[in-house]
């Protein structure tokens, strides 16, 4: 059975306006973050996965199913959209229950699954209240509950952490991890880069409708040759270490800290650098700590797209 979400040379135009262009992707199970500024095409990609928008060109497949077959696809996917709107007059429980009934499930099954989903997002206490009276964070969670209520294999979440307080945010991230560990796809879009760093198994960086980079953060970072990797090394003999490092051809800069506590190193080949550093440690250089400074989404984003998102 196919276990990936694939985009094969997919383009989408809104009249003259470009949504996404020539996107080819294969998304494996795990947590995948779509990262990019407003208008970069994140929501368009998500809408195409869910069949809410169709590609102008190319083909999308979710676990081998075309979005043109909603009767099969929607059993597999759960989508929490960015739209902060709900059918009028419903309580949280009625909302989940009513839309589960659209799946053709029995009354009892819908009641049970609605309760379970609401409990998973910690909304049991508010389930009997009208959604119109919910806070932004509660509305986000009830949307998430609907997305997970039918136990989908692919969870698509557009800015799911917006409006959540820190405690709920951590609980929600834990839920994403749990679902990813169960072998599901959790595809998340976010502006908040440190969160993406924290939760993602892989990232897809988008800019102006194009996929700029995709893969695990470290791999993507390693591919950016224009910006040497920066590593901060705390050690007792920084000048000795700096002189040893200068002998390596991939080290482009080694700068001693003003307080003499360590060395800031810039290298074009992180893997070779770490191997060499291990050798130096074995041969008597005492290292107190090694911290990569720009091996994260924030830096990757800045180098590739040019500027901090938020």
């Amino acid at each position: 059975m196919n276990t990936t979400v694939t985009f094969d040379n997919v383009s989408r135009f809104y009249g003259e306006v470009l949504g996404v262009n020539r996107v080819t992707l294969s998304i494996p199970p795990g947590i995948t973050s779509l990262v990019g500024p407003n208008g970069s095409g994140k929501t368009t990609l998500m809408n195409m996965m869910a069949g809410l928008v169709r590609p102008t060109r190319g083909e999308v497949r979710v676990l081998g199913i075309s979005p043109n077959e909603p009767q099969r696809l929607c059993h597999m996917i759960g989508y929490a959209t960015q739209f902060d709107s709900f059918p009028r007059g419903l309580t949280g429980q009625e909302f989940i229950y009513s839309f589960l009934r659209l799946f053709g499930y029995s009354h009892d099954r819908c009641v049970k699954q609605a309760e379970t989903a609401i409990a998973r997002v910690r909304m049991t206490g508010a389930a009997a209240r009208k959604i119109a009276g919910y806070s932004k964070g509660m509305r986000q969670r009830i949307k998430l509950a609907l997305a997970i209520a039918h136990d989908p294999r692919v969870l698509i979440l557009d800015e799911p952490l917006n409006g959540l307080d820190p405690l709920v945010r951590n609980e929600t991230i834990a839920l994403f991890r749990e679902m990813a560990h169960e072998g599901r796809h959790v595809i998340v879009s976010s502006h908040v880069l440190h969160e993406v760093d924290q939760i993602s198994d892989q990232v897809i960086l988008l800019s102006n409708g194009y996929v700029v980079a995709e893969g695990q953060i470290h791999d993507v970072r390693g591919e950016i040759k224009d910006h040497p990797m920066q590593v901060w090394i705390r050690c007792a003999q920084p000048s000795v270490l700096a002189s040893k490092l200068f002998e390596m051809d991939h080290v482009v800069e080694a700068r001693l800290a003003q307080d003499g506590a360590g060395v800031l190193v810039k290298t074009r080949d992180a893997d070779r650098f770490y191997r060499t550093l291990n050798d130096l440690a074995v041969n008597g250089i005492e290292l107190e700590g090694v911290t990569p400074l720009d091996d994260n989404v924030n830096s990757v984003y800045e180098y590739l797209i040019g500027g901090e998102s938020r």
Binding site: A50, C74, T81
Partner: peptide
Amino acid sequence: KSLHFYLLAPM
């Protein structure tokens, strides 16, 4: 902006 709930049901 609530039509998508229907379109996300398997029918």
